[in-house]
Amino acid sequence: MKIFFGTKAPVRILPTLGPISLWIALFVFAPVGVIIYFSFLPADSAGEISAGVSLKNYWLLLTGDTDYGKAILRSVLYAFITNMVCLGIGYPTAYWIARYGGRFKALLLFLVIAPSWSCYLVRIYALKQLVGYPGILNDFLLHLGVISSPINMLYTSTAVVFGLIYIWLPFMVLPIYASVEGINPALLEASLDLGASPGWQFWTVTLPLSKGGIFGGTILTFIPALGDWLVPLLIGGNKVWMAGNLIQHYFIVRGNLAIGSSMAVILTAAVVLLIYMCIKLGGEDAVERIV
């Protein structure tokens, strides 16, 4: 401590750390702090908050009829499916671009990233135009005579998961691509020289060395999908709620800020835990891939 403060380092660090720390303190920690504070305030069923500190809201979520547990489980399930499908599509895509993209790598990556440059809401509406009715896909299939009447592809649980995959897929491809691209080719050659088949090489060399990208991609897809509420609202027709929708319902419709805050704190805690697990499993590489 003495040595640290004895040096001039803090004086040099402060001007660089100062603005970003202030920014994070003001716009990340302060709002989270307010939410945590609200979550411990006792409130009645009408949302009237009284003075004091209590665990009543958390107890109610565990034991009451708020349906929060089911909404969380449903969100975890949707986010898990989203993550797995994104991984299933994203890994081969990233692998192929990294290994066989050649001089088209930049173009192919651009094509993957480009949709994510547009507004999130615009992409949701684009998807609705694509698969809704009237919509490009339905019109095309009808024109070809593949279907005789339009298929209802929106406003179902499947549509919600499909929407989440559509929105978050690019965020799985990028970290995996960076991981695969960063593998030293000498290691791959060495494995072949030692007699590994291409499949075995992938299993024992490529996959372990790209796990940082996989867990980095998981952080970037699973976590936003877990807290998403716009996709269920717009693609799911607001018929099936995820945890985010229930939180919004408690904050806005029921005006119960205390219960809504407790729900938000639990969801945030789950997200922090997941990030921790991903970093633990994916190692430093996972953090590097998402920064």
Binding site: G132, Y155, G236, G237, N238, K239
Partner: peptide, 17 residues
Amino acid sequence: NIMSFDSWPKRAVMAQE
């Protein structure tokens, strides 16, 4: 039988969806 819950489904109405 409910397609969606939406307070102002302008796009869907205009598209006669």
